[in-house]
Design a protein around this nucleic acid. Structure first.
Lengths: 207, 207, 207, 207
DNA sequence: GATGAATGAGCGTTCATTCAT
DNA sequence: GATGAATGAACGCTCATTCAT
């Protein structure tokens, strides 16, 4: 790595790193207090700077939420797309998607909380059109998967697919509200336990 | 309208009805936009009056949320308590509690949304201490029921009770976000379908 | 007194009596909390009615203050005028005026407090022009009396008349802030004690 | 302006000066219109800024009054305490205290007016408890001084001390309502004239 | 004479945002 | 990169006042 290269790094890359750091702080507070109830002064305080200084890094409060959410969704869909390409068996795909979702919660907890609590609102502004688009993709993915699973006998034939889709979607994301990365349960454990409940129910099986 | 009707109607009863009407409007908007993001002027607009006029009926924005939430929770716990007294079989109790929850969503949809989205923030103020108290009662109720069910063989012996409690709790209330009273699905239908998924899972049973 | 006469009394006179009663209540609160800081709801509460009901009796909050102050000033000037006609000796006139002022405090304490605290403000509105007029008359009366007294040897020849006027004026009225009718000191006692201090000073006399 | 000057000037000192400037403006208007009747917008207008901008400098309207009053009282008591330590003769102490009071009026006229007109109301809030404390200290100081003066023969033996205390207190402070710094009379002249009236009275002495 | 419900203006305060330094 | 001071719009709320009943 040439010195020239390192210099370029210490500007562009350092800037990127600082942005990410600030966004992490913002995401934590947005998730904790709610987007509307969070003041950018609170974010700035937590970052050890004055409110006005944040505007050197970001255009607006909205743009922070935007960057937090779009970063999260981009990464999420990358992992989903990888799974959808690899796993053709509905049951296996479902397992992998659920696991990937819990991994996302583990890695982007505040972003997930933000997504869950505020996407309805924010989605109304054109800037956040991708949130609604993501919802649609989400629904299509799950509904498609469930319908195929029913056809292929992986899932109960009497499944109410639209309802089951919402059941799955909500059940998974809502866990971000109580899951603590590094706590008693790892993302993987939670995922497996949830999967068992979802697939086999909570009453005793026949075996 | 006969004088008799007007007499019975006037004063206390009419006031109560007007308050309820206004609270209904407020609850709808709080649920739709979020409590913090809702302005008193939006509520007043929707009620066809000026912002200040709301203060003839209510002390503060907070007191509106308070009345919405406490009314809902009072009614909810009345129905829960009735069930807990009547149904001693864990499985039957669970079914009845889930059904009662969906009935509550049907009747108090905006209040449920408000409860779910804002109780964490509001609960910090002493005035809303009953929200946290309700959470605790909730947890104790479900955890107790699940543990008893496991002991008595009604539920899987390997159930992770704390996790299952959260699964049940979230799964049910989160439905308030999409459920439309008077839509395709009645509260009862949703409750029965959810119950089947929760009890038996989504994969085909052996029977 | 004919019945007809008594009927007329029970309308006009009763109305007058009620107004006076309400004005007494208002004056107490205006004096206690300050005019600007007093809400007409507080006055109405104290009178056992609703805020709106006061407007049956009075045009506005201002008109209450108006009536309180003008009633007080009319009576005050009546007593002053009587004295000025009777007492031609400066020293005797001064004594009588001071005594009359303390009598006014005794009988109209809240009005005096209101007068003292709010006349500067209220005087700016044309409706209260008589307040400024009264101030001028006041000053002319005292300054005239003091100058005559100096000329005639009743008061010190080196008296700074404008300053002494303010001294007398303030000294007397400000007592309304602590004087309690029916307390340890009667208006007359206070008047006599004040007079001694004003005339002879607080240091020991030669006698 | 040299850089040296600007450096010494900047940050803390400049901020303090700006605060003092704004407080001076606020004090003028509070004194002129009354605290309750003054709007924050009036203060901001006079300062050439918008209402909200004041909140960059001060927490609240109340905190402005607080700072104005506490600054004044601190300085006043410093001068009083110095006198009480130095002058042991009651008559000399009284003269010095009256003079110091007029000096305080000269330097803090609006603060004195505010103190006199609003301390009764403001004193009820815990934040302004020091106002009541100051009243008590005031009374103790004057009553103590007068009693000692009577015992030692400096003041008339028949003096009604509690009444004389109020007489002195009011007489002095009330002058803030008409005294104009830089006008015909200096604070010192007023003080001396007042003192003569207080000590020797307004009627001709025997000498 | 009084009530109950509302109006409309304005208040103290907050907050995202801007910008010269 | 960050600060300090300000803007301007809006917010929750208060209050004198009105008026049909």
């Amino acid at each position: 790595m040439s010195p020239r290269r390192r210099d370029a790094d210490s500007t562009a890359a350092a800037r990127t790193r600082r942005r990410a750091e600030l966004l992490g702080i913002a995401a934590d507070i947005f998730a904790e207090r709610g987007y509307a109830a969070t003041t950018i002064r609170e974010v700035a305080d937590a970052a050890g700077m004055l409110a006005g200084s944040l505007y050197y890094h970001f255009d607006s409060k909205e743009s922070m939420a935007d960057e937090i959410l779009s970063t999260f969704l981009t990464e999420l869909w990358e992992s989903y797309d990888r799974i959808l390409q690899e796993k053709h068996d509905p049951r296996q795909a479902l397992e992998a998607l659920i696991a990937a979702s819990f991994t996302a919660i583990d890695r982007h907890r505040p972003a997930v909380v933000l997504y869950q609590n505020e996407s309805k609102h924010l989605g109304q502004s054109p800037r956040f059109a991708y949130l609604d688009a993501s919802h649609v993709r989400f629904r299509d993915m799950w509904v498609g998967l469930l319908e195929r699973g029913v056809r292929e006998g992986a899932f109960r034939s009497d499944l109410d697919v639209p309802l089951a889709y919402r059941f799955l979607r909500d059940t998974v994301w809502v866990a971000a509200n109580w899951y603590t990365p590094g706590g008693r349960l790892t993302a993987d454990t939670v995922a497996r336990t949830y999967l068992t409940m979802i697939l086999e129910g909570i009453q005793p099986g026949p075996s």
